[in-house]
Design a binder for these strands. Structure first.
Length: 217
DNA sequence: TAGGCCATCTGGTCCT
DNA sequence: AGGACCAGATGGCCTA
């Protein structure tokens, strides 16, 4: 996606690159605004270095380039994950992967998270049944009803919905069976929605999904 | 046209 | 001293 082209650094302001932890090697590179609105205050004890406009531009260019590269690497990793998760995003995507809309970043991450949870549940069931590698696959994997992605807000399934996502609901697990750590969901956000209580993702989600519009495949 | 998604720029903080 | 990481701001593209 070519959006804003890499631009030549424009308004260069005073940037404090000082370290909060140790002031011994702290530094302060002043990228004064080219408009010349005045010099930013230099912190006491900080080593300041004036850069001429060419140096300011070059520094800004390097910083921007690094950031661009960092984000591009991150997007490459996201694409790799998206490629793996795409077949599980929706039934239609499995049949017509080339016609499906690509997953958004947030959808990819949420789908991957739920897939991992589902695999964990399946592994747990295999252990419970004493199934080896050559044995029958757990019903969770055979059920075929994957937590298909409708919209990002609809994919954060509860552990219960994961365990009962198959056409044949699973019998309750023995109480003595150690359980995998599952996300703790706190109710909130109105009927049919729940909030994850963990600090990382307090996204509302809808347990009963309906076909999505934005990312149908 | 509004809203979602995204890339890029930018300044701040942390780490080596 | 410089790089990595992060989050906010901004603007472009696309779809309903």
């Amino acid at each position: 996606m070519s959006q804003m082209p890499p631009s030549i650094p424009t308004p260069l302001r005073c940037v404090s690159l000082s370290s909060q932890r140790s002031s011994s090697h702290a530094h302060h590179v002043c990228l004064r605004t080219l408009a010349g609105a005045g010099r930013a205050p230099v912190r006491p004890g900080k080593v300041s270095r004036e850069l001429n406009p060419e140096e300011q531009q070059e520094l800004r260019r390097r910083i921007n380039s690094r950031e661009r590269k960092r984000m591009q690497d991150l997007n490459m990793a996201m694409d790799a994950l998206r490629e793996v998760m795409m077949p599980y995003s929706s039934p239609a995507a499995q049949h017509h992967p080339h016609h499906s809309r690509r997953l958004s970043k947030i959808s990819t991450l949420i789908l991957a998270r739920n897939y991992i949870l589902l695999l964990g549940s399946s592994l747990q069931e295999m252990r419970r049944l004493g199934v080896g590698l050559g044995g029958a696959a757990p019903r969770l994997l055979l059920a075929g009803n994957w937590p298909f992605l409708a919209t990002p807000g609809q994919l954060l399934l509860t552990s219960d919905s994961l365990l009962t996502s198959g056409k044949n609901s699973l019998p309750p697990q023995p109480t003595e069976e150690p359980t995998l750590p599952q996300p703790q969901w706190a109710t909130g956000g109105g009927p049919g929605t729940q909030l994850c209580s963990c600090g990382a993702c307090k996204l509302p989600h809808i347990v009963h999904t309906s076909p999505g519009v934005r990312y149908p495949k």
